[in-house]
Computed example of a mutant assay.
Amino acid sequence: MNGVDLFLLGRTLMKIGEEALPTENLQAQPGSVRTVLIVVSDVRTHPGSAIGEIAARTGLPQSAVSGAVARLREAGAIVTAPDPRDRRRLLIEPAPEISHRVAEVRSAPIEDALAKVLDTTDPSRIAEVHALLEQLANHLTPQVLARLRE
């Protein structure tokens, strides 16, 4: 595997993840799921950040981060508070308790999406790939990305 193969694998995994996420009661907005997930990952890795800091780290436009923060706050995934040093800025933290919507999204099964992309209904094949993905996820958590930036 080389860097291009790894990049393409990552893109494929993102698309499978998007397919597996429940989208009931959500407005269809191109790229919005991906943006929200990038912001969630950044907030979990860097709690207490301001919108501008998240935008700088993720490379997303500040307006996209603001929109994602609003959606995440509404879903109960994050909480915001004014920055005590600059009341114009909001500091963003993961919510202390998991909301119903966040629990629903986190518990969404991936088997149907895997069956679709693998073009199989064989439960043992789906379980094999699922187990491999879990093993990979245990090694490559969102927190390890900080090492790439060092």
Rank of each mutant, 00 (worst) to 15 (best):
R85Y: 10
V39F: 04
L132T: 13
R88M: 14
F7T: 06
V33N: 12
A56C: 15
H100K: 15
V102W: 09
I78Y: 01
T58I: 04
V144F: 11
V79A: 02
A28L: 08
R71Y: 00
V33W: 07
A113S: 09
N138G: 13
D83V: 00
D112P: 10
V129T: 04
G59F: 02
P109K: 14
V79E: 02
E93T: 07
E24M: 15
E104T: 15
L90E: 06
V102T: 06
E53W: 05
D122G: 09
A55C: 08
V36G: 04
N2W: 14
P30I: 11
G48N: 01
R71S: 06
E104L: 08
A28G: 11
G76S: 00
T80V: 02
R149I: 15
A20W: 03
V4E: 15
G31C: 07
S41P: 05
L114P: 11
E74N: 00
E111Q: 12
T120F: 01
S32T: 06
P109A: 15
R149F: 12
L140P: 01
A137Q: 07
G52R: 10
E53Q: 13
A68L: 01
A95L: 05
L91D: 04
V36L: 01
E18Y: 03
V36I: 08
L9R: 02
S49R: 00
V144P: 07
V105H: 03
A77M: 03
D122Y: 04
E111T: 05
V102R: 08
T12R: 14
D83C: 02
E18I: 11
Q27Y: 08
E134C: 06
P123F: 08
P22S: 12
R89A: 01
P47S: 10
P61M: 11
T23Y: 15
A28R: 10
A108M: 04
P84R: 09
M1R: 15
L148S: 05
E128A: 13
T80Y: 00
A95W: 01
I126D: 06
R147N: 10
E19K: 07
T80E: 03
I38V: 08
G17F: 05
A28W: 07
V33F: 12
L90Q: 11
G59T: 03
L118W: 03
G52C: 12
K15M: 11
A50L: 00
E150V: 14
R11Q: 14
K116A: 14
D42Q: 02
E111C: 03
D86I: 04
L145V: 04
Q143P: 05
A108T: 14
T35L: 00
L114G: 15
G67P: 01
T58Y: 06
R89H: 11
V33H: 09
D112G: 12
A137K: 05
D83E: 06
E150H: 09
I38E: 04
S66K: 00
P82Y: 01
G17D: 13
P123K: 10
A81P: 07
A131S: 06
H46V: 03
G52E: 15
R101L: 09
A127C: 00
